[in-house]
Nucleic acid binder design. Structure first.
Lengths: 150, 150
DNA sequence: TATTGTTATACTCTATAACTATA
DNA sequence: TATAGTTATAGAGTATAACAATA
């Protein structure tokens, strides 16, 4: 653990201050458009399963960054709401096969597009070069924190 | 609700994808250094009360962006852990006066500096101009989402 | 009557420990 | 024995509705 430059430190402090605020905004939008029934982790789970159809529980837990029991419970909720199906794999009967239902696909789409639209409305207020800065920052952060990636 | 430019939309999608990842990292660091007893909302609450000593419950709830009952419960936990004191105001006996205890001040300091240090370590891996981009982005985002501000 | 705060209730998030079933 | 997943348990986050106390 080496000495920190002021810039490194200030950058960290700003992240610590700003990210939770943006997170709260995102949570609000996802809930609003997810008919009040989707949390952010549920939303991210649907999103992942949509891209990796048939993923196992462990795979999803890894990518979302939850423990297996936590993910198991989270998926319980998604199954109960009819957004996901959970079937035992034939090749290895210890593993699950997760798939979105039609209802789940619809909900994911509605929640995502709703949240994107509202966030975009906010982002209209700033200048194009400012949006470009945010975009670049998100790409950089995505590389700095890769193991926690969606 | 007007038509979105591709840039506005892409910026929103990137926020939606990246912010939860960074948030998870922050949560992990705060917990790690907060001796596993501080959540991010609790951390933010301590931080706010530290700056606005004697704040009322409503003031804190407003600034953190929680409902009164939620904040009441959150503060319950902080009082139980001995990080905060809660006293009725003399001028208006409906209101509370929240203050950090010495223990609370110490915990806030340890949690914040620990999280900042670890985040900074990550940020060492990138170039100074990339850190500058992140810093600028955080400042811009802080202005775009002002009502939810810390 | 309006404001401040708490209690009751009910979800979700999240973890650890203990367990079951399969390989 | 090792892996995949569930169940049990527990504390925190969060909201709405109903309530008490104060102004």
């Amino acid at each position: 653990m080496q000495r920190l430059t002021p810039q490194e430190e200030q950058c960290a402090r700003d992240l610590l201050e700003t990210v939770p605020i943006v997170m709260r905004m995102i949570r609000k939008q996802v809930r609003k458009h997810g008919a009040s029934t989707l949390s952010v982790p549920q939303f991210r789970t649907l999103s992942f399963v949509n891209r990796r159809k048939g993923a196992s529980l462990s795979e999803v837990a890894d990518h979302i960054g939850l423990t297996l029991p936590s993910m198991s419970g989270l998926v319980d909720g998604l199954v109960t709401h009819g957004y996901i199906t959970r079937k035992t794999q034939q090749e290895d009967r210890r593993k699950m096969n997760l798939m979105l239902t039609e209802r789940g696909e619809k909900m994911l789409h509605v929640a995502r597009e709703g949240a994107v639209t509202e966030l975009s409305e906010r982002l209209k207020r700033i200048q194009p070069n400012e949006r470009a800065t945010i975009l670049r920052a998100m790409r950089i952060l995505g590389e700095v924190f890769p193991e926690e990636k969606l």
